[in-house]
Amino acid sequence: MKVIATYNIKGGVGKTAAAVNLSWLAARSGLRTLVWDLDPQGAATFYFRVQPKVRGGGKNLVKGSSRISDFIKGTDYENLDLMPADFSYRNLDIRLDQKKNPTKRLKKLLAPLKADYDLVVLDCPPSISLVSESVFFAADALVVPVIPTTLSQRTLEQLYGFRSDRKLDGLKLLIFFSLVDRRKKLHHEVMAEIAVQHPEVLKTHIPNASQVERMGIYKKPICDFAGSCDAAQAYEELWAEIKKILWR
């Protein structure tokens, strides 16, 4: 079982859009896939039409009093399940804190799912928090959408800094450009510069495309309702790149 997490301390950069589409593509390729919505806002849960409320809430989960698999819901797609967001996740930070080893907790929660899933996609909330700390320990790779701006260079340095501070050398950083506007000169310049300094950044760009926003109307991944549009094709390429690295 591989674990990836869509991660960026900023909101609105396309983390959830990536989580939803990548997990859908993974499931379609035959991998038994679980999306875990860690964001109390529950956007991923919403896209998959699952009710955000989890029976028992986040409390029991972290305490370990009930089995984690009891909370999982099947989506409308085969091979694709979802751990719904819950408003009590607002408290997940605090709850994790009460444990002796909060950073390892999420990894422990995932352990019993090993036999059931080939891939887990954690959709992270924005901001640095204990949740994200525990995500670093649980994940094999962070999938990081970055909007190409003058600040993106700094975002990257911060990420690499994080990883070395925490001695997480095994954690892969899969950085890709998101919400790319083909008409903006600045975007092209920033991407060209970063491609030179960080050749490990993924090749695929996800374009800024209005169809992606329509996911909220259809409540479906764009790869499902508009599979042939540019953005959907870009997600397919992104998935192909990530898949290759994960199972290398």
Binding site: V50, F71, I72, K73, G74, T75, D81
Partner: peptide, 12 residues
Amino acid sequence: PSVVRLSAVRGY
């Protein structure tokens, strides 16, 4: 024999 097959969706 012809069959009607039901598949459960997890959590429902």
